[in-house]
Write a protein that binds this DNA or RNA. Structure first.
Lengths: 147, 147
DNA sequence: CTACAACTTCAAGTCAGCTTGAGGTCAAAC
DNA sequence: GTTTGACCTCAAGCTGACTTGAAGTTGTAG
């Protein structure tokens, strides 16, 4: 497969694939002239990377985990840690969601006068709610060409 | 209050406070010589900003909502939308968490041979799991001076 | 009055994860 | 054999939310 094929099948832009290769996240099996040649298991690897990213691993972390070569026995403890971390995030988000929903229907004249809202404020400013969701949900919006 | 006081009480670095002021997120009530003077309701405003951030609003969005002056009647529909968005994220993260936990205890020789894990892979690569958690949980780690 | 710590401004740097652009190469279609 | 267009490399740019650094000012303790 050439890079266009991989891009098409994975939905990941060629530029990103090159970037991933440079980072050591994926590898091409060789070249045909200048052009990279990939074999199909790169798709699995890309899926793995997408999964890791979705789970909150950075590309560097993924590089470590996938680093060696084929199937590098992903550390199970690491998975549990990450799961725990996600669970914490879920709890925070749940508070947020409920707080927002309440705020939306709350009859207090201003949000500031609603005790629930004020409690939520407290939570947020005490940093109980960590970094947030960070909202960069879609590069699809910026990139919008395929729109 | 001078900026140091606000920083101390809010836990937000002075540099960030200046940055927020420049962005129009907060305002100082005047100067004492060169120095900014804040009044105490800036703390409430900062809490509100922290809350918004935690809920996934960007600083620009927060600037819009808080924009006018005092209590700009935060749009309730916007809150509901954000709540919905968070709820979606929660659902995704829940799948992730469960998937990771399963993967951690799964007896399949390699994760690749575990059907649940493969299903999770599918989810991730189909983008069912959006941008991820984005993991920049703590600038506290980078910034670590206050250790 | 002199230090000096704490403030000020403004520009530039950082981090992650890519994207974009310029300039070059090469395989295949005509 | 020439054109075309997809690929290549390398460097630089982008976004968001800040931080850092240099250079200047100032309130205040001694």
């Amino acid at each position: 497969m050439d890079i266009a094929e991989v891009a098409k099948r994975s939905g990941i832009p060629a530029s990103t694939l090159r970037f991933y290769e440079e980072k050591g996240l994926i590898r091409s099996v060789g070249r045909s002239g200048l052009r990279r040649v990939f074999n199909s298991n790169v798709l699995e690897r890309l899926a793995l990377i997408a999964l890791g990213r979705a789970a909150g691993f950075s590309l560097d972390e993924m590089a470590q985990m996938l680093g060696a070569d084929g199937r590098p026995e992903i550390d199970r403890q690491l998975l549990l840690d990450k799961a725990e971390q996600i669970d914490q995030t879920i709890r925070q988000l749940t508070s947020m969601r409920d707080g927002l929903r309440h705020a939306a229907v709350c009859s207090a004249p201003s949000h500031m006068e609603c005790p629930k809202f004020r409690r939520l404020l407290g939570l947020a400013s005490r940093g109980a709610i960590s970094g947030g969701i960070t909202k960069r949900t879609s590069r699809a919006q910026r990139t919008s060409k395929a729109g």
